[in-house]
Design a protein around this nucleic acid. Sequence first.
DNA 1: TCAGTGATTAGG
DNA 2: CTAATCACTGAG
Length: 173
Amino acid sequence: MKRLQKNFFTRDVLEVAPDLLGKYLVRRFDDESVQEFLITEVEAYRGQEDLACHASKGRTPRTDIMYHEGGHVYVYLIYGMYWMLNIVTATKDVPQAVLIRGIEGFDGPGKLTKSLQIDKSFYGENLVSSERLWIESSEKLSEIKIKSSPRIGIDYAGEEYKNKPWRYLLCNK
DNA sequence: TCAGTGATTAGG
DNA sequence: CTAATCACTGAG
């Protein structure tokens, strides 16, 4: 196991997203305990032209972090209750992010962040240097199978983008 | 199926 | 300031 470095995150989101499957999300809690979670489901949000991406409406205080270099964390609240965990990818001024939808043991992005105790304080966290949240790769899982499908909950994105198969799932059963 | 929930955003 | 929006969940 070793922590993923910046060059992993600075690629195009469509490369990074499927590549995150089979990797481990590692969280060090406030009591110093460390837990690792296999990433099983992600979605790619790609730039200003992707109408499902929050950055499609332009740069705002909330989406600002997506315009940074890959390797940062984008966290936001949805439906007044649930924090969503995203990982910023690509280079400066290219707004892309990967939504972590599922990890082993927890299905659903809302439950995931609740279990990992992730909230707004993680907005902008650097996954390369952070002491409480990062990603590790495992040499064991060299062979994995990936399935893709349209993204969830983005009917507003228009015909072209809502049907893009930018949701990736692990299926090595 | 559908209500709860509050940050974020655009518009006066 | 106000009103609309929303990458979800759980109860029924």
